[in-house]
Structure formats: structure tokens, C-alpha cells
Design a protein around this nucleic acid. Structure first.
Length: 688
DNA sequence: GTTTCAGCGTTTTTT
DNA sequence: ACGCTGAAAC
């Protein structure tokens, strides 16, 4: 888990002096690291050492005696934050980034926003800050939907999640809900009236209860900065503000950054306009370019030498990289040896793609390349469905990043909800969830019970709850409330967590068929929670960065464990592996058919493809399964024949080696136990 | 009111 | 495969 964690602790002891901050930096990087005074803008292509430059700059500031707590290091994604703080900690090993117990401020925009919003909650007019994640928001919207009695209407309302997407996009792009619907969600149009009304209620209710969704955290931070007194406190708090991946910030974040460093003094940003891939959140690479205009005195440093990949790989990347061909930044490999040409692997369908990828991965393992040096990247989380199946049957350990995480972790949410009710009796969403865990209590009864539960007379209210409950839920509720009281009166975090577990155990056992596995998971979570210094902060951190459950728990538990990484391209941003496999490189998947409508959307897909290719150091394979299911439906055998991704132009193909995977012929008994092969229809033969 | 089940529609990426 | 909806059974 990774909140707005400080860089300090990890460092001091173990890191040897060899990690000097200037080691191996080239001239351009060094000039960025050493730059003093006016705002600094570093524009750099993939693999040119942006993050390295940023972290070295931090290390150098510390060496010059800058107080760590006066440095703020901002990133957009959690993984980037994780990566950067780890590197900064390693680099500054010898120079005490935690001098005098003070620490560098670092983390995602959202995590830092949460710290500040909590600190100034009084000024924001809220007693307690509860951070709600998208699924909490969905619950809230569903509760409000009942109030609107919209359930029985002839045409069906969009899903709660869709409505929240609409709302979020409106907030992040500073547009009206109505306009967002017309341009980006046309199929919601018949419901605009109902949706806007519901969303208005949603906003009101959040305000009433002190609930902050992810967008609210950023909005609140920006709002704090418009209050002169608070703005003074915050602008004086840091001398140096450094922002990574600046091409991915949206308007709100731009406002925050410019308010924090008026005139840009002490501001450092790094970015690459060719890697802007968060347009759906309101980010534009023009923010990066506008910054240079807005700060005419700023210093612009370009990094062009690529320290990551071999030239043959960059030859392809340079073809794919979007932008004006005359002035586009071309990547030049710094590493000796041109390396192998990227491979294009054409396969029959997704199943064959999965087999081929696993074969290649295991082949590399046999040649001495560990799994952790290899990654499979895809456009959308579900593109790896079949691959995950294949990996499981062949016992290849893997960790998946991106895609939906909280869905598979209902019990993790249950645990957090249990903690939340004991920490804040008035957390109605958490109560709503906990109550519904009881047999015989569904949404309607839970809603009916809420007023009693939230009542300020602790015992009276609870007795009332039990009395009001249906007979079969009474025993279970009685036990829940017993443990609840126990938890509330615990004076240590550990006792409280134990009581919460006791509260959940019978409920989960009755609810989930696989309760045993889930409870094991919770024991691990409980151990982490028990050792947290501040449970309230623990819960908020867990909301911003959900703990990974089950297989994901294999995160990096021990260094000796080896696993393959599966990741969406978005989540892979800024990271690198020796070998990279890009799957589903066909039109409709990558680029996503969702983006084909607009030139802007298509361009963003192209940048995303560029990001995917440039993650590889040594070897890159791109897979194009020809035949893909039409819709993601289990028993529907409709397939369509896909075309290779339009980004694989003739010019691109000229830089690649093309492989055809021979069609599997007949089952070879036992080679792939558990995966029966079925003879394919002749038509398919003709089409290949 | 709740649970269960059948039927239907779904658009992706992150915090 | 999932979540939402409505209808039937409890």
C-alpha cells in the first residue's frame, strides 16, 4: 500500500555510497539536475531518464542542505509515486532525506490532497473527512436512485457507474454534465434530466455527510488555495515543487500547481507530449506546452538520448511516435549493439495468442531470464482473460496491474466498512454495507435501519435496531452489535481490528462459499491494520490505494519470489522490462474501437501504443490474434476477423521480423492437460 | 421485503 | 461475465 508516504524511512541504513546522485548522468541530465532559480521544464522522450533526472535533482537539493520537508514531489499514478519515492530514497541514501525527522512530501496528487484536506478540514467546514471510492459512490447513487423512485420507468437508467463517469468527466474537464453527455455519452442522452437531477443530489449528499470522492479531493485542494490565508500557508510550506508526467495533469491539477508556485519559482516539471494518455480525465499535453509560454523566464531542457532500449527497437518507436515528423524528437539509443528487431507475431485467435505468449515467456526463463524481467501489456484489463487462464493452468505466477481491482475483493471492502463504522458511527455508507451482510437484510431493510444505527443514543439506538430487525437476522445482528461495541471501546488499534474481524467472521462465512480463503486474506489485512499508527489514516490510504487481495497479494512479498507482470499500458507507464509482449494489437482492441470515432481519440491511442513499445529494453513482441470474440459473451460464438492494428503501418512493419504461428493441428495428448482442443471449422482454414 | 433466477445490455484507460 | 431489472416464491 502506498499513500502519501514519505521517502525517508526506507533509506538511511542499507544504501551504499555508490548510489551517488550524479553517477552516470549525461550532460543534458546534469544541467537539469543542477539548474537553479527559474522554473525548469524538462521535455524528454521515453527512456531518456526523466524520473532519474527528477530524483537526482531531489537528491542534489538535499545535499545542498535543503530541508526535506520543503520539497514536494507529485505524480499522477500510484505506481509512478511508488517508483519515484523508492528511487529518491535509494539515491539520497547517503544524505539523510529525513534530517531532523523531517521528510520529503511525496505521492500522488490525490494522496497529498487527502493529507491537506484533512489538515484543513475545519476551514472546509467539515468535521470529518471520509474518502469514498468509486464503489462507495455507486452505493450512494443507488440509495439516491431509490429516493427518486426511478426504478419503474419504461426506459432504463444508465448504470450508476456510467453516471459517475459522466460526472467525473464533467468535473475534470470543467464542462456541464449536459454537454459531456451530448459529446461523450450520447446513449445517456434520453436520460439527461434524471441523470443531472440525481447527480445534483449526489453532490448535496456528499456535502452534507463530509464525503469526498476522488475528484473532490483535488477540487478541495484547489479550493483551499483560493482562500488567501491558507494559500499563504501552503505556498510558504514548500520551496521546491516537482511534478512528474506533467503531460498527464488536467486543468484542476494545473491550477493547483500554478497556485502553489506563483510565477513558477522553485517549480520543476518533466513530461513528454508524445506520452499523454489521460485525455479521458481532462489531461492535455497542451498543458505542458502552455506552461513554457506562461513562464517565459523558464529554462527548457530536452533529453534525447535513450538509455533504455536498443536502436532496432527505437527504430520502430520512432515510426510510431506521433507528432509533426519534421520536428519530432527522435530517440537515439545510447546502448551499444543494435539488438534484435521487434517481432510481429500473427496468431489465429486469442487462445493461441495466450499459448504462444506463455511459450515465449517460459522459453526465456529457460534461457535464464527471470519472470520479473518480462511483462505482458494490453490496452484493456480484460484483454488478458484467456492469458490468465493459460498462465494458471501452466502454473506460471503472475501479478496483474490495472483493470478492475475492487470487484474481486468484496471481503476487503467488507473489512474496511467494518473498521469505518467503529471509527465513525455516522458513516452511513459503511453501515449500509455492514448491515446488508446479514441474512434477511437487503437494501430496503438496511435503509430502514440506518436512522437507528446513526442515532446518537448509542445503546438505545442499537437496541432499537435489533428490535426492528426481522426475526432471522436478530441473532446475527445481536452478535454484530456486541462486537461493534467491543470495537468502539477498544483503546488499541490491534484490539479494535480484532473485534472487527470477530464481527465479520460469521457474516462472511454465511455469505461467501469461499469464505475460508477470504478470511485468510483478512488475517493478513488485519495484521497490517493493527500495526498502523493511525487507523483513520490507514482506512483512507486503503481507499486511495486498495490493498490487493488473493493473487495480487503476491505483490513483492519476498525478493526470491519470481512472477510475470501483466499490466494495462496505462499502469505500465514509466516502467520498463527486458522483454515486453504487447497482446491484442488489432484494430478495435488496440486502438480501442471506443476511440476510433474522433481524431483526438485515435491520436491518444497512438501515443498509448508508443508508450507500450518503449517499455522494452531488450526484446519486444507484438501479437495480432486474427479472430476475436465479437462480444464478451460466454456462449456466444460470434467472432469477427480483426485487422492488425492500424499503427502497424508498412513503415513500421519494415522495422520488424514477422512470424506466423503455425495453426495447432491435432491434440498432442497431455501436452496441455486440462485444455481440450476442439477441431476448428473448415471455414477458418480458408480464411487463414 | 428478501432471495433467487432468467433476461438483457454492456462499451476502456486512473485516482 | 457482470450488473441491473422484474417477476415469482418464500
Amino acid at each position: 500500500m502506498f499513500g502519501s508516504q514519505a521517502i525517508a524511512a526506507a533509506s538511511s541504513a542499507s544504501v551504499p555510497d555508490s548510489s551517488a546522485w550524479d553517477e552516470g548522468l549525461d550532460e543534458a541530465q546534469l544541467s537539469a539536475v543542477l539548474h537553479d532559480g527559474p522554473p525548469l521544464i524538462v521535455v524528454a522522450g521515453a527512456g531518456t531518464g526523466k524520473t532519474r533526472t527528477l530524483t537526482s535533482r531531489v537528491a542534489r537539493l538535499l545535499e545542498r542542505g535543503v530541508d526535506p520537508s520543503r520539497i514536494l514531489l507529485l505524480t499522477f499514478t500510484r505506481r509512478a509515486a511508488e517508483d519515484m519515492t523508492a528511487r529518491a530514497a535509494a539515491l539520497s541514501g547517503g544524505i539523510r532525506p529525513s534530517a531532523g525527522g523531517r521528510r520529503v512530501w511525496g505521492g500522488t496528487f490525490h494522496a497529498v490532497a487527502h493529507r491537506l484536506v484533512s489538515e484543513f478540514s475545519e476551514q472546509l467546514g467539515v468535521a470529518t473527512i471520509s474518502v469514498i471510492d468509486p464503489s462507495d459512490a455507486t452505493d450512494l447513487l443507488d440509495m439516491l436512485r431509490d429516493d427518486h423512485a426511478l426504478t419503474g420507468t419504461s426506459t432504463r437508467l444508465p448504470r450508476a457507474a456510467t453516471m459517475l463517469d459522466v460526472y467525473s468527466r464533467a468535473v475534470n474537464t470543467d464542462r456541464r454534465v449536459r454537454d459531456v453527455v451530448t459529446t461523450d455519452f450520447p446513449w445517456v442522452d434520453p436520460h439527461v434530466e434524471a441523470v443531472t437531477a440525481l447527480l445534483r443530489d449526489y453532490v448535496d449528499r456528499k456535502r452534507q455527510r463530509g464525503l469526498f470522492d476522488f475528484d473532490d479531493l483535488l477540487l478541495a485542494w484547489r479550493a483551499l488555495l483560493t482562500e488567501p490565508a491558507i494559500r499563504d500557508v501552503l505556498t510558504n510550506r514548500w520551496d521546491h515543487v516537482l511534478v512528474d508526467e506533467y503531460q498527464d495533469v488536467n486543468r484542476i491539477q494545473v491550477d493547483i500547481v500554478t497556485q502553489l508556485r506563483p510565477g513558477g519559482v522553485g517549480l520543476t516539471v518533466v513530461g513528454d507530449d508524445a506520452q499523454a494518455v489521460y485525455g479521458f480525465r481532462g489531461a492535455t499535453s497542451s498543458h505542458l506546452l502552455e506552461l513554457a509560454d506562461a513562464l517565459p523566464q523558464s529554462r527548457l531542457v530536452r533529453l534525447e538520448r535513450n538509455f533504455r532500449s536498443r536502436q532496432r527497437l527505437l527504430d520502430l518507436a520512432n515510426v510510431v511516435r506521433p507528432g509533426d515528423p519534421r520536428q519530432r524528437l527522435r530517440l537515439h539509443a545510447d546502448r551499444a549493439g543494435a539488438g534484435a528487431r521487434p517481432r510481429l507475431v500473427r496468431c489465429y485467435d486469442a487462445a493461441e495468442e495466450a499459448r504462444t505468449v506463455v511459450d515465449a515467456v517460459l522459453g526465456a526463463v529457460q534461457e535464464g531470464q527471470p519472470l520479473r524481467d518480462q511483462a505482458v501489456l494490453m490496452r484493456a484489463g480484460h484483454h488478458s482473460d484467456l492469458l490468465e487462464l493459460e498462465l494458471s493452468t501452466r502454473h506460471v505466477p503472475f501479478v496483474k496491474y490495472g483493470g478492475l481491482r475492487f470487484l474481486e475483493a468484496a471481503h476487503v471492502k467488507d473489512f474496511l466498512a467494518a473498521l469505518r463504522v467503529t471509527l465513525n458511527q455516522h458513516d452511513e455508507l459503511a453501515w449500509f454495507r455492514v448491515l446488508r451482510l446479514h441474512e434477511g437484510i437487503g437494501p430496503a431493510r438496511a435503509r430502514a435501519l440506518l436512522p437507528s444505527v446513526l442515532s446518537d443514543d448509542p445503546d438505545g439506538g442499537l437496541t432499537e435496531v435489533i428490535a426492528a430487525a426481522p426475526a432471522r437476522a436478530r441473532t446475527a445482528l445481536d452478535s454484530t452489535l456486541h462486537n461493534y461495541r467491543h470495537a468502539c471501546f477498544s483503546d488499541t488499534a490491534s484490539a479494535r481490528v480484532t473485534a472487527c474481524l470477530a464481527m465479520l467472521r460469521p457474516l462472511l462465512q454465511a455469505r461467501y462459499p469461499d469464505a475460508a480463503a477470504r478470511l485468510v486474506d483478512l488475517d493478513r489485512l488485519a495484521a497490517a491494520a493493527s500495526s498502523a499508527a493511525d487507523l483513520v489514516a490507514y482506512v483512507a490510504d486503503a481507499t486511495l490505494d486498495p490493498p490487493r487481495s488473493t493473487t495480487d497479494q503476491a505483490q513483492p512479498p519476498h525478493l526470491d519470489e519470481d512472477y510475470l507482470t501483466l499490466s494495462t499500458v496505462h499502469s505500465a507507464k514509466g516502467l520498463e522490462w527486458e522483454s515486453v509482449h504487447v497482446i491484442h494489437a488489432v484494430d478495435g482492441a488496440f486502438p480501442s474501437d471506443m476511440a476510433l470515432g474522433t481524431p483526438d481519440g485515435l491520436e491518444e491511442e497512438q501515443r498509448l501504443f508508443y508508450v507500450a513499445l518503449t517499455r522494452a529494453r531488450e526484446s519486444l513482441s507484438i501479437y495480432t490474434p486474427l479472430r476475436l470474440p465479437h462480444h464478451r459473451r460466454a456462449h456466444d460464438d460470434r467472432h469477427s476477423y480483426a485487422l492488425a492494428s492500424r499503427f502497424l503501418t508498412d513503415e513500421a512493419l519494415a522495422t520488424m521480423d514477422i512470424h506466423e504461428v503455425p495453426r495447432p493441428v491435432a491434440p498432442l495428448g497431455g501436452l496441455h492437460a486440462g485444455l481440450p482442443k476442439v477441431a476448428r471449422p473448415t471455414l477458418d482454414h480458408l480464411l487463414l
